Amino acid sequence: MLVENIINSNHDQTINYINIHPSPVLDKLTVDMEDFDSLTIYDTLGNLIVKKNENIIDLTLLSTGIYFVTINNNKGFKTTKKIIKK
């Protein structure tokens, strides 16, 4: 589980809460974040795998490996985190 505060240097404001779970993920990835808007998932080569406006994503069909999740909120903040798919 990954929980942290994220600071956007453009606005000097903080996203108070982000929780990405489970880690590693077997089937469904859940993102809990203040003012969640969307997420995108990329493979290690930078290929876009998933783009959704939902905070629960079914990753059952993804191959085992490392992926990067970019999470956006509706205030213009974004962060990218690494996830492991089992």
Rank of each mutant, 00 (worst) to 15 (best):
M1Y: 13
M1G: 13
V3R: 15
E4T: 10
N5G: 06
S9F: 08
D12A: 14
D12R: 15
T14D: 04
I15Y: 05
I15N: 07
N16L: 11
N16G: 14
N16D: 12
Y17H: 13
N19F: 14
I20C: 08
I20K: 11
S23K: 13
S23E: 14
S23N: 15
S23I: 15
P24V: 07
P24W: 11
V25R: 03
K28W: 13
K28P: 10
V31A: 12
D32I: 15
D32N: 15
D32K: 14
M33F: 10
M33H: 06
E34K: 13
D35W: 12
D35V: 13
D35P: 08
F36C: 12
D37G: 12
T40C: 14
I41K: 11
I41V: 12
Y42D: 01
D43I: 00
T44A: 08
L45V: 11
N47C: 12
N47F: 10
L48I: 02
L48S: 04
L48D: 01
L48A: 05
I49R: 03
V50E: 05
V50K: 09
K52W: 01
I57P: 05
T60W: 04
L62C: 02
S63V: 03
S63L: 01
G65Q: 01
I66V: 11
I66K: 03
F68G: 01
F68P: 02
V69A: 05
T70M: 11
T70P: 07
N72P: 06
N72H: 07
N74E: 13
G76R: 03
G76C: 07
G76V: 08
F77M: 08
F77D: 07
T79D: 09
T80Q: 09
T80G: 06
T80H: 06
K81R: 14
I83Y: 01
I84T: 10
K86C: 06
K86F: 03
